[in-house]
Simulated assay, not measured.
Amino acid sequence: MTDEILLSRQGRLGLITLNRPKAINALTLNMVRAMTRALNDWAGDASVGAVLIRGAGERGLCAGGDIVAIYNAARSGDRAPVDFWREEYALNLLIADYAKPVVALMHGVVMGGGVGVSAHAAHRIVTEGSTIAMPEVGIGFVPDVGGTFLLARAPGELGTHLALTAGRAGPADCVLLGLADVFVAKDRLEGLADVLSDCASHDDVGAALAKIAAPAGPPPLADARPWIDAAYAADSVEEIAANLAGVPDLSAQAALALLRRHSPTSLKVTLRALRKARALGRLAPCLDMELIAATACLGGHDFPEGIRAAVIDKDRAPKWAPARLEEVLEDQIARYFA
């Protein structure tokens, strides 16, 4: 295979280790293809009872994709990112529909593409060090890898809040949002593969994880549900911003400040996508919708500009175009769904 992905076996457990720790295991096309081949091979192997996906190093499972490569492609007109997304999204669907139990260890940073290879798994583990985010609107992009499907299914409007603020969720909030299932303290992880090595069913995995799991603690977002649900229930970003402006809670004002920093186009496209995902109700059509939107982002202004400001020049001062929510017209939003 490739050193970027380590494949091994422990008893009946197939192990996939993302192995780019210096890049927080950011995904490459080779990694996507290696994971896809391994999962397809193990699907027909009776000696494999379950699969564990984890990341090398202590920093995180996966920080997403290679956005510098996407920036270069956007500037040159190269369509390679579209091919990458197509294969990546197929992998996300494969994980979601996998007949055997897939366990994802979501320790440390889990962002963007990292969410795609973990949050669709049947058994999702967070630790005290887990930070999960879909920060796409901050770089002029939209939630993808099935992010619209996941966030649209979150309780109330918590998913809308997380998407439009590009917020980060800790372990307890991840369980509340439906992005994770169980909390396991970091000091219990060393024997995780041993615990899973004899598992051959979802019941086996559930029982094994129950032996090492612990309460995740109170989720901070639970206390904010009343104002979040009220503010984000609106069907336009302008209305949401106005609603937030009228909430005296400091957390609401912080959310409004974050929202105002992000790409107006991405905010409007993301809200539309979340509402469509809620109606679609299944992962596969959401991924199809996201591929169309992602392709449109590649040819637009804000995506390369957002990457420039965040990771190329690092000036943190993107010049969005249009610059104001009111300037983003309906026909401009519609092309992200055409």
Rank of each mutant, 00 (worst) to 15 (best):
D66S: 15
I67M: 15
A69Q: 13
Y71D: 03
Y71C: 06
N72S: 15
N72V: 12
A73K: 08
A73T: 12
R75T: 10
R75I: 10
R75F: 06
S76P: 03
S76D: 13
S76H: 09
G77Y: 12
G77H: 09
G77E: 09
D78E: 14
A80Q: 14
A80E: 15
P81H: 09
V82R: 13
V82T: 14
V82N: 08
D83C: 12
D83S: 15
F84L: 10
F84W: 10
F84E: 05
W85M: 14
E87T: 00
E88Y: 11
E88C: 14
E88D: 15
L91Y: 11
N92Y: 02
N92A: 13
N92R: 07
N92F: 10
L93F: 08
L93I: 10
L93K: 09
L94H: 02
L94M: 11
I95C: 06
A96C: 10
A96R: 03
A96E: 10
A96Q: 11
Y98D: 08
Y98V: 01
A99L: 12
K100C: 04
K100E: 00
P101M: 06
P101Y: 01
P101D: 01
V102D: 00
V102T: 04
V103T: 10
A104R: 04
L105C: 07
M106L: 05
M106E: 09
G108W: 02
G108P: 04
V109E: 02
V109D: 00
V110M: 10
M111C: 14
M111D: 11
G112Q: 07
G112K: 04
G113V: 02
G114S: 04
G114V: 06
G114A: 08
G114M: 07
G116K: 01
G116D: 06
G116I: 06
V117P: 00
V117Y: 11
S118C: 11
A119R: 02
H120I: 11
H120T: 09
H120K: 06
A121K: 02
A121V: 01
A121D: 07
A121S: 09
A122S: 15
H123P: 09
H123L: 03
H123T: 06
H123Y: 05
R124Q: 11
R124A: 07
V126D: 01
T127I: 11
E128V: 01
S130H: 11
I132F: 01
P135T: 09
P135E: 01
P135Y: 09
P135N: 12
E136L: 12
E136I: 12
E136F: 14
V137M: 10
V137H: 07
I139V: 14
I139W: 05
G140I: 06
G140W: 00
G140Y: 09
F141T: 05
F141G: 04
V142N: 00
V145R: 08
V145Y: 12
V145L: 13
G146E: 04
G146A: 14
G147D: 00
G147S: 08
T148I: 13
T148Q: 01
T148V: 15
F149R: 07
L150V: 03
L150R: 04
L151C: 08
A152M: 05
A152V: 09
R153E: 09
R153S: 15
R153G: 15
A154D: 07
P155G: 07
P155A: 11
P155F: 07
P155C: 12
E157I: 01
L158Y: 07
G159I: 03
G159V: 07
T160K: 05
T160H: 05
L162F: 08
L162E: 06
A163Y: 06
L164H: 00
L164S: 08
